[in-house]
Write a protein that binds this DNA or RNA. Sequence first.
DNA 1: ATGGCCGCCTTTGGCGGA
Length: 270
Amino acid sequence: MTLTIATWNINSVRLRIETVARFVAEHQPDVLCLQETKCIDGQFPLADVKRMGYEHTAIHGQKGYHGVAVFSRFALKDVDRKAFCDKNDARHIAVTLAEGPGAGTRIHNFYVPAGGDEPDPAINEKFAHKLGFLDEMEAWDALRVGGGASKTVLVGDLNIAPLEHDVWSSKQLTKVVSHTPLERRRLTEVATNGGWVDMMRALTPEPQKLYTWWSYRSPDWDAADKGRRLDHVWLSPALAPAMRQVKVLREARGWDRPSDHVPVVATLAL
DNA sequence: ATGGCCGCCTTTGGCGGA
């Protein structure tokens, strides 16, 4: 039996609900995790989500910014929404699959702060927030999955491209927030100290380029191809033997009125 | 750096994204 889990920063779920429907029709993930839904829970287009075949949903939104959601073909239990950095800004939701091939699997869906422009926490509060968020992720017991039997998946827009070949030019981006040496090291520490396996890079090792985001500002994103890998799929070691495939849906960046991120679809054999 | 865009708001310009 296989379980497919997709993650996608949708950049407004209300504006792009038909884009979500297109992706679901074409790829049929069992579980879909969204980030940047940008609406309060009462405005979330749940009727459309049900029409796509997802009977089970868990959402955590706020007005205008951020927001995360999980849609599932299988029943969910133990839904938790954790606040980071003493803010209530809808950047995390966790669920456990209660049935199906992945029954018992815990899924954490994250939207890590972007961090503003200036990569100096002393003068840029947003960058300090991003680093503080990573500190809290690293310290959280629930994200320490190494060594045990825990079946846990962490997905989301982590807003950091940690490896050299996660960006089009590591040298040219070294002072750009999302690829500074400090962020790269801190995200790697969160993963390593937590015991996580980077599923995308386990299946597509460096030096192959791997991007999930292309700026809206690029006049010809496809030809220029100045992308970054900001979206991630991490697995606890107990799930690593189940890794089968990761698809990065580059073509979705070229759809009408696209998100600047594309879906990432992970397949596990369970 | 891509910086030339996009989406949100009790909107018409400012903020946040990355």
